[in-house]
C-alpha cells in the first residue's frame, strides 16, 4: 500500500509525533511512503534551528533522522515556509535574509507536490491540530 502523509502542525504538537509514529509503523508494516508533505505550521518540523527542551522529545530531530534513514521524499511547502521564516540557502539569497534554517533531507517545493503525491498514493493521511 502506498501512503502520502501530510503534516499540518509544528513539531511540538502531539499530532506531529502521531504522524511520525504512523509513518514508522507504515514502513515497518512493509508499506511505502510516496511522499511526506509539510504544510502550514508543519514546515516548522523542517527547521534546523529548533531547540527542544532537554526533558522533552526532540520530534524535529526524529523527523530529520527518520527521513534521512529511509531516504524519503520530504517536501516542505515553499509558500508556507517563506511566511514562517523557514528558508533554504537559495531562498535566503533571493530575499536577502541572513539566516538559513532548512537543508537536506528537506526540499522546498509547491503545493502541487501534495496533489501529485495523492495521485500516486493509495491513501492520503493528514495529521494536524492537537
Amino acid at each position: 500500500m502506498k501512503f502520502a502523509i501530510a503534516l499540518f502542525s509544528a513539531a511540538h504538537a502531539p499530532s506531529s509525533r502521531r504522524a511520525l509514529l504512523f509513518a514508522q509503523a507504515a514502513l515497518a508494516g512493509g508499506h511505502e511512503i510516496v511522499r511526506l508533505f509539510f504544510y502550514q505550521d508543519g514546515v516548522y518540523s523542517a527547521s534546523n534551528t529548533i531547540v527542544a527542551p532537554q526533558d522533552e522529545q526532540d520530534i524535529a530531530r526524529q523527523w530529520r533522522e527518520f527521513v534521512s534513514a529511509h531516504q524519503l521524499d520530504a517536501v516542505v511547502c515553499i509558500a508556507a515556509a517563506l511566511r514562517r521564516g523557514v528558508l533554504d540557502s537559495e531562498e535566503a539569497a533571493r530575499y536577502q535574509r541572513s539566516a538559513v534554517n532548512l537543508e537536506a533531507p528537506w526540499e522546498l517545493s509547491g503545493l502541487g507536490q501534495l496533489h501529485d503525491a495523492t495521485q500516486a498514493a493509495d491513501r492520503l493521511i493528514c495529521f494536524g491540530g492537537p
Partner: peptide
C-alpha cells in the same frame, strides 16, 4: 488500536478524513 492497527484501519477503509 496501536499504531500498526492505525495503519491497518487506514487500509481497511477507503478514505481517511482527518478533522484538522
Amino acid at each position: 488500536v496501536d499504531y500498526p492497527g492505525f495503519v491497518q484501519l487506514s487500509i481497511d477503509y477507503d478514505k481517511v478524513n482527518t478533522w484538522l
